[in-house]
């Protein structure tokens, strides 16, 4: 079955980000979104370690060890960008100044709960970082994740199995198979990859889905 690659998922999520938005991209898959922001929009990326106006990864020879992103990879600053300290960085997050946080997750529930900080493996120390601050504080939360685990289990569940990061905050979910909105009436499928029909998507999903009347095919350019 054809499904979106990780980069195509990132591309799809990027298309929905509005001109002028202040956005935090979580570490991992969401970080890829920065490569596909539409060129005709000014979108200001926020990094929790004190950056607004974060740019792309540096070109060879232009790396600066004092300029890193939330995932601790090297980054750059765009003209108009600014540096500030950690408390201001999190004031922006917790005080509702960010328009959007696009996060990764282990699981999402049908009521918009998100679990992304621990899998409760005693051998592995947990790490929360800025996840709970972003999930509780940004004006809108969207999530980008693989629809199923490697073993085929649904990551979109009636209730999250792993400990929550925040409850009832997620508004839109991008997966390798579909775009799904979390609404007061439950999960509404907006887009599905062409090779899959709605009942096949439901079979891969633990939570109950409904199909939007104006649903579309989920297609992304070859990347």
């Amino acid at each position: 079955m054809k499904q979106l690659s990780r980069r195509q998922m990132a591309w799809r999520a990027a298309q929905d980000i509005a001109d002028g938005a202040y956005v935090n991209l979580g570490i991992g898959l969401p970080t890829l979104v920065s490569d596909y922001l539409p060129k005709d929009r000014e979108i200001v990326l926020h990094s929790e370690n004190g950056i607004l106006g974060m740019g792309p990864a540096p070109k060879p020879g232009e790396e600066d060890p004092d300029l890193i992103n939330a995932g601790k990879g090297l980054t750059t600053l765009l003209p108009g960008g600014a540096f500030f300290h950690h408390n201001d960085a999190f004031l922006m997050i917790r005080g509702g100044h960010l328009d959007l946080a696009l996060l990764g997750a282990y699981e999402i529930s049908e009521t918009g709960d998100i679990a992304n900080w621990t899998v409760e493996d005693p051998a592995t120390p947990p790490g929360v970082g800025g996840a709970m601050d972003l999930a509780a504080g940004a004006k809108e939360i969207r999530v980008i994740l693989e629809h199923n685990t490697k073993e085929g289990a649904s990551r979109i569940r009636r209730r999250c199995h792993y400990p929550l990061t925040a409850s009832g905050v997620v508004k839109r979910i991008y997966t390798n198979l579909a775009v799904i909105d979390v609404t007061p009436d439950g999960l509404v499928v907006r887009e599905i990859v062409p090779e899959l029909d709605f009942s096949q998507l439901q079979d891969k999903t633990e939570a109950r889905l409904t199909l939007a009347n104006d649903w579309r095919k989920l297609e992304a350019p070859a990347i």
Binding site: H86, A89, F90, D133
Partner: peptide, 14 residues
């Protein structure tokens, strides 16, 4: 280990 959300860690010090 005391695990603290990053913004809370910063704000507790502030």
């Amino acid at each position: 280990l005391e695990l603290v959300p990053q913004g809370t860690l910063s704000e507790r010090m502030r």
